[in-house]
């Protein structure tokens, strides 16, 4: 057991953790967070993507003990119960989700991407957006609505800046 202090969505706890416990499991069981989904547990599908100190990372390839002292954010921290984040709203209007299982992973992969593009004032091509999500698998939507949602989230904010 290794003493580990984790801050998940602002809640800090110090736990005795067995080293082999995956971060995804600890977030889910110890912090009762359900927005981290395990799709493959071998680092291919992206469902378990969370932010560690603001950077997207696969929580199925990370041991909780490696995150001592780190800030971890899950999809719950993006836009709360009402899913108010601009990207969440765009996923809704563009039908970027169906069963919802892969959705938190896509959102956590894409939120910093969208933020960066908006900060740089860039509208990426569909090809670039598709590459940005090449580490996430969605089995329901065919990615079409997801690409449209990213486009919309970026263009809405770029237009907002101009106005």
């Amino acid at each position: 057991m290794t003493q580990t202090t984790l801050t998940v969505n602002g809640q800090t706890r110090t736990l005795e953790v067995e080293p082999r416990r995956l971060l995804a499991d600890i977030i889910r069981t110890e912090f009762d967070v359900s927005g981290v989904h395990i799709g493959c547990a071998h680092g291919v599908c992206g469902c378990c993507t969370v932010h560690i100190d603001g950077i997207p990372r696969l929580s199925c390839l990370t041991f909780a003990v490696q995150c001592d002292g780190k800030e971890i954010n899950t999809v719950e921290s993006l836009g709360g119960f009402d899913a108010t984040h601009v990207l969440q709203q765009a996923f809704k209007s563009e039908h970027g989700l169906q069963c919802g299982y892969c959705t938190p992973g896509f959102l956590m992969t894409l939120a910093p991407y969208v933020e960066k593009k908006v900060a740089n004032g860039e509208m990426p091509s569909d090809e670039e957006i598709r590459e940005a999500i090449s580490g996430n698998i969605c089995r329901c939507t065919g990615y079409h609505g997801i690409v449209a949602a990213v486009r919309k989230a970026i263009s809405n904010q770029l237009e907002g800046q101009q106005a």
Binding site: G35, V75, L78, F81, D82, A83, Q88, K92, S93, L97
Partner: peptide
């Protein structure tokens, strides 16, 4: 727009492992 989306997007939806 789908009514089920908000709980799926916000992360509070409960699947079998939940």
């Amino acid at each position: 727009q789908r009514f089920e989306d908000v709980r799926l997007l916000s992360g509070v939806a409960r699947y079998i492992d939940d």
